[in-house]
Amino acid sequence: MTNEEWAASNDATEMLVSLYLERPAYFQEIVPELHKFLIACCWKNKHLTPQKSLIDGLKGAEDRVAGKIDEDEFYRLNWHAEAAVFDLAYWETDTPEDVERIKAMIEGISELDGMSFKDARGVMNRAASFAEASMIYPWLRMGSKAKRPQREKIQPERWCDRLFRSEFLCADLLREHLAPDLVD
């Protein structure tokens, strides 16, 4: 990808894949910038993640990057954010009250108007999953070497691939956070 193609692209995934294929070592150097980019994409899509625990988790991720909170506080916030993802993901255990609460969230989001409950909930679940994974991106990419509490074996390639192919990425935000020197 050339500088001109980078400037004109509307496909953040294509931009990231091209950059990675051309300069894989560069991704190791720009982890903080990628983390900030992912969090910015979450804020752009915050209407799809109105849960307080997700908003608090995103603020916590920003505060952790800025050194304003310690790891323990960040992990606490992330734990609650992850619970919001599970709340949307595991519909099999929903009570009628759960369904009504989620319907109320969906009704307030114009982008989901006209969708079935299942489809709207799916969009919200993908947005919540994207937000929670974006919060912990620097730790995800390290997999089992990460310092975060291990409840399961993390497969960094799978998670990072999913993050960088998400429907919630924004090419304009990528350009704001990354300015690679590409060959023309």
Rank of each mutant, 00 (worst) to 15 (best):
182 L>W: 00
109 I>H: 11
50 P>Q: 05
162 R>S: 12
67 G>Y: 00
129 S>A: 14
87 D>S: 15
43 W>N: 02
52 K>Y: 14
71 E>R: 08
25 A>M: 15
121 R>E: 04
34 L>S: 00
73 E>M: 07
90 Y>T: 01
125 N>S: 14
16 L>G: 00
119 D>I: 05
90 Y>Q: 03
12 A>P: 13
112 L>Q: 04
184 D>P: 05
124 M>E: 05
25 A>C: 13
175 R>K: 00
141 R>E: 09
72 D>T: 07
5 E>C: 10
31 V>K: 07
88 L>R: 02
76 R>F: 10
62 E>Q: 13
120 A>E: 02
106 I>S: 00
33 E>Y: 00
153 K>Q: 12
14 E>S: 05
51 Q>V: 07
57 G>E: 04
158 R>H: 15
64 R>P: 05
88 L>S: 01
167 E>Y: 03
168 F>S: 03
74 F>G: 02
97 E>G: 08
133 A>K: 15
63 D>V: 05
25 A>F: 15
32 P>F: 02
23 R>D: 06
173 L>C: 03
52 K>A: 11
30 I>Q: 00
82 E>L: 13
165 R>E: 10
17 V>R: 07
30 I>Y: 03
33 E>D: 06
64 R>V: 07
102 I>W: 00
52 K>G: 06
134 S>F: 10
65 V>G: 07
152 E>I: 13
164 F>A: 01
176 E>C: 03
11 D>A: 06
119 D>R: 06
103 K>L: 10
14 E>V: 03
81 A>V: 10
144 S>C: 01
119 D>E: 02
153 K>E: 12
102 I>T: 07
154 I>S: 06
57 G>F: 05
166 S>N: 08
63 D>E: 11
41 C>L: 06
171 A>C: 04
179 A>H: 02
91 W>K: 15
86 F>D: 14
3 N>E: 11
53 S>G: 11
180 P>G: 03
21 L>P: 10
38 L>G: 00
140 L>V: 05
177 H>M: 01
64 R>G: 05
152 E>H: 13
81 A>E: 06
153 K>I: 10
19 L>C: 04
157 E>I: 09
110 S>K: 14
154 I>N: 06
57 G>I: 05
99 V>T: 07
51 Q>E: 15
102 I>L: 00
41 C>N: 03
136 I>Y: 15
55 I>D: 13
94 D>T: 01
138 P>N: 04
3 N>K: 12
85 V>R: 15
179 A>E: 06
136 I>G: 11
127 A>K: 02
157 E>A: 12
104 A>T: 04
106 I>V: 07
33 E>K: 07
71 E>T: 08
113 D>H: 12
